[in-house]
Amino acid sequence: MELYKFLPKTNCKKCGKPTCMAFALDLLQGKVKIDDCPPLLEPKYKKQYDTLKELLGAEEGQKKELKIDVDDDLCDGCGICVTVCPVNARYCPPTLSGKAPDYPPEKHQLFQVKGGKCELLNLEYCRRLEAQGRERECRVCETYCPRKAIKIDYV
């Protein structure tokens, strides 16, 4: 939510969004451009405008794609991401060791641990793409990975 800090934070609704926060979210996902916020173009926000431009990088304007990166060197296959991802959790049959994702993986399953390393199966059903509202801000896998091996990014 770095982006939010640099918006005018007045919730003036001129961008068509209900709040600045909502605008920031869409900005992060590349749905809107910085220029869509009229107040930001005013001279007094010049500095913030420039910082935002910088933060969003050169591809400003192009649609950003969600990328979840698992660092193989760090990951030790603990399987926390598999169990904790709320999408995986929806399809968990109970096993002897609590409810855990199935094998062969259900088609919605995002992660599995194979050969001692975490493997990203598909991103399609990640909440950051599928869900609405606050759920869309899901970062659970990144937060709880004990080895900090997961990075959620937009490129």
Binding site: D76, G77, Y103, Q112, V113, K114, G115, G116
Partner: peptide
């Protein structure tokens, strides 16, 4: 293939 085991187990 070993599926489900951590690095140590693998």
């Amino acid at each position: 293939e070993v599926i489900g085991a951590c690095l140590k187990g693998k």
